[in-house]
């Protein structure tokens, strides 16, 4: 209200001073609010509202009903699909992290030029459409694709083509490829804050490079590693394009079913119930993770 007050009849500059002081006081008091307000508004608009809408869809038809959840519980296949999604998520997270950690470490210790080149190589696939990547993998992984031609015809490593496509292997390859840039960039952001002088100090005290890495760098990187692993796993639960295009008959994920029931069958209630199931599992996983993290910090303190 003070902000919009017209200049009073008093000395003009003085009025301006008063206004400015009031403004400053308001900014000091409400400035922090102004800082987190956009974030909260964003979360409400783009996260809470859609999630609320999904939850509402899953229990309304048009009055309150639990029939969609009853249908979920009635067929053991949905539990199986959930297990398949988790299994695919765990395996792809494992391989993603195994591949991402060394790359992130190299990024940290690399010279600026080398790092820039590496970054470009990491980001290029990151910006490529997921459908394009899946179709590219189909060409590479099929029976007469690049990999099998190389293995069988050029090097003669294997006698007959390996089954790399339309099975679990294909799904994992496609998903790891998608998750890698995300994992590498997240890991790198955390790892670069580790003071490399500590590693050098360890070496100065007589540790060989391997020991210095294992005794100093690795333990310091564990919190980042855990957080990134969790992030990658949560992301991996939501995949539906990759398993649908590169998977076989039994690679059915919850996210694929959500897509089917929303887009093809148009049973939004059941699709929403499936989505809520996936969300619930994710939240349980996150809760366990944060509980463990808190415990760890307390013990450390």
């Amino acid at each position: 209200m003070i902000l919009v007050r017209k200049p009073g009849p008093t000395f003009r500059d003085h009025a301006g001073d008063v206004r400015e002081q009031t403004f400053d006081r308001l900014l000091t008091r409400f400035g922090p609010v102004a800082l987190w307000l956009p974030g909260v508004a964003f979360m409400v608009a783009f996260f809470l509202l859609p999630v609320g809408w999904i939850v509402a869809q899953s229990v309304l038809d048009p009055g309150f009903t639990l029939k969609f959840y009853e249908r979920l519980a009635a067929a053991p296949e949905y539990a199986l699909v959930l297990w398949i999604s988790i299994k695919i998520g765990l395996i792809s997270t494992l391989f993603t992290m195994l591949a991402a950690y060394p790359v992130a470490y190299l990024l940290v210790i690399a010279q600026p030029t080398a790092r820039a080149i590496m970054m470009a190589c990491i980001l290029l696939p990151f910006w490529t459409n997921i459908l394009v990547r899946c179709y590219a993998w189909m060409l590479v992984l099929q029976t007469k694709g690049l990999v099998n031609t190389a293995l069988v015809d050029w090097f003669g490593v294997v006698g007959s083509p390996l089954p790399l496509l339309f099975n679990l292997t294909g799904v994992i390859i496609g998903m790891v490829h998608y998750l890698l840039p995300i994992a590498i960039l997240t890991l790198y952001a955390g790892l670069k804050t580790i003071d490399l002088r500590l590693v050098r100090a360890a070496q100065g005290l007589g540790a060989n490079p391997v020991r210095a890495f294992l005794a100093v760098f690795l333990p310091l990187s564990l919190p980042t590693l855990r957080a990134t692993t969790m992030l990658v796993f949560v992301l991996s639960l939501g995949f539906y394009v990759t398993p649908a295009l590169l998977g076989g008959r039994t690679e059915i994920t919850v996210a694929m079913l959500v897509s089917t029931y929303f887009s093809d069958v148009l049973n939004w209630g059941f699709g929403a119930a499936l989505a809520v199931l996936l969300l619930a599992v994710t939240l349980v996983g996150l809760t366990i993770y944060f509980a463990l993290e808190r415990n760890r910090t307390r013990v450390a303190a």
Partner: peptide
Amino acid sequence: IKNDVVFWEQWPQAPGLLASGE
């Protein structure tokens, strides 16, 4: 023929997979 079928997801997949002999 359950174990000898690839169930593809999108129509554009089929002609390519057929032409390549997959």
